[in-house]
C-alpha cells in the first residue's frame, strides 16, 4: 500500500509539465532583468502572472509585440521552453 502511494506520487511528479528546477535558459534572464524587487529600466516580468509571461513571450515570438533584445531570443524558444520560463518566473496565483 505504502509502495503504491509512493508510485502514485512519482507518477504525479512526472506528469507535471514543468518543475521549478532551474535550467540554462532561465538562469540567463537575470543578466538583464536583474533579481526580484531590483529597480530596473529594463521591463521587468516580476509580479506578472504565469499566463501574462507566457503570453508576452508568445507575442515576442510571433512578432505581435515589438521589443529590442526579447524578440531575438523568443523566436528560438519552443512552446515547452516558454511554458517553463512562465512557470519559473510567474507570480504565484493568489
Amino acid at each position: 500500500m505504502h509502495r503504491l502511494a509512493v508510485l502514485a506520487l512519482a507518477c504525479l511528479l512526472l506528469a507535471t509539465p514543468t518543475t521549478r528546477a532551474q535550467d540554462s535558459l532561465s538562469l540567463s534572464c537575470a543578466v538583464c532583468h536583474g533579481a526580484r524587487n531590483a529597480p530596473s529600466t529594463v521591463p521587468s516580468f516580476y509580479g506578472m502572472s504565469t499566463a501574462q509571461i507566457e503570453s508576452a513571450l508568445r507575442d515576442f515570438r510571433s512578432g505581435a509585440r515589438e521589443g529590442t533584445a526579447m524578440p531575438r531570443l523568443a523566436k528560438a524558444m519552443s512552446d515547452d521552453e516558454i511554458r517553463a520560463l512562465a512557470y519559473e518566473f510567474g507570480a504565484p496565483v493568489r
Binding site: 532583468h33 536583474g34 530596473s40 529590442t68
Partner: peptide, 20 residues
C-alpha cells in the same frame, strides 16, 4: 528614441550582470 532606450538598457545591463 530607440537608440536612447537601448543606451539606457546598456547601462542597466551592466549593473545587472555585474551584480549577478
Amino acid at each position: 528614441e530607440l537608440r536612447a532606450r537601448e543606451a539606457a538598457y546598456a547601462h542597466e545591463w551592466y549593473e545587472q550582470i555585474t551584480r549577478d
